[in-house]
Design a binder for these strands. Structure first.
Lengths: 120, 120
DNA sequence: TCGATAGTCAACCATGTGGTTTATTATTTT
DNA sequence: AAAATAATAAACCACATGGTTGACTATCGA
């Protein structure tokens, strides 16, 4: 990952740190949505929702197309890919831990097989 | 992902939204570190670094073992795996876009092959 | 043209964030 | 016992965040 991409992770992870914005992204995964449509599921003012949308836009997670008085928003996946890639570096740690657990369970299984009073 | 896991994404993504804390995690990927060791690379007070460490701890990203007056910190990968899994849902969108780009390039290449004035 | 609709802007508020400095606790070293 | 070290706690500061309400702009539809 380049330095420029890494520095843009700040606003991306910040945008993702709010459940409202994550729900909006999930909604946008189903297709384009207007600002009103994105705001509708939430019990907050349209203005508050509009701020959330601007945070997502500022992080590059969505783009908007103004059509008359409505704004169509669509998902922009590239920054999510960057975040995913950053997290991917740590995959070795959780898979290592799962491998260890797996090994432990296999060893336990083998032990039970040698004294087969009650196989699972 | 369960609802309980999803709700814990808030502090995880928030912890990741700061470059200082991301660097600390990267450092911890190399092995255990004390609070002082984690703070050393940064031009900020030990107290400020200690706050960052507490944010990471609060998100469950690190655990600490108190040994006398030193605190050994180690990486806790599980919440990173949750975040990775959450982002993984969107993988379809960036791979779709790359596939489309790929198709476009292939089509362009084919066009050039049919009128082979100057092959790339 | 006139009212309804989509959306933003601006001001305000309570709380959170990231940093500082000073003080404190607990442990290790001499 | 005294000094040095590792780390936290607390108070403070400037600024960001997430929400509100009220006013405004621009477009659509009757």
């Amino acid at each position: 990952m380049t330095e420029a991409q890494a520095s843009r992770l700040d606003p991306v992870f910040h945008a993702l740190s709010d459940a409202t914005r994550r729900r909006m992204l999930h909604d946008l995964a189903r297709g384009e949505r207007t600002v009103s449509e994105l705001a509708e599921p939430f019990s907050m003012s349209l203005q508050a929702a509009s701020k959330h949308i601007k945070v997502l836009e500022g992080a590059g997670l969505i783009r908007r197309q103004v059509l008359g008085r409505t704004h169509k928003c669509r998902l922009e996946p590239a920054p999510l890919a960057n975040a995913f890639q950053w997290l991917g570096f740590y995959e070795q740690f959780w898979t290592a831990r799962l491998d260890a657990l797996d090994a432990l369970l296999r060893a336990e299984d083998a032990r039970k097989s040698r004294s087969p009073r009650k196989r699972r």
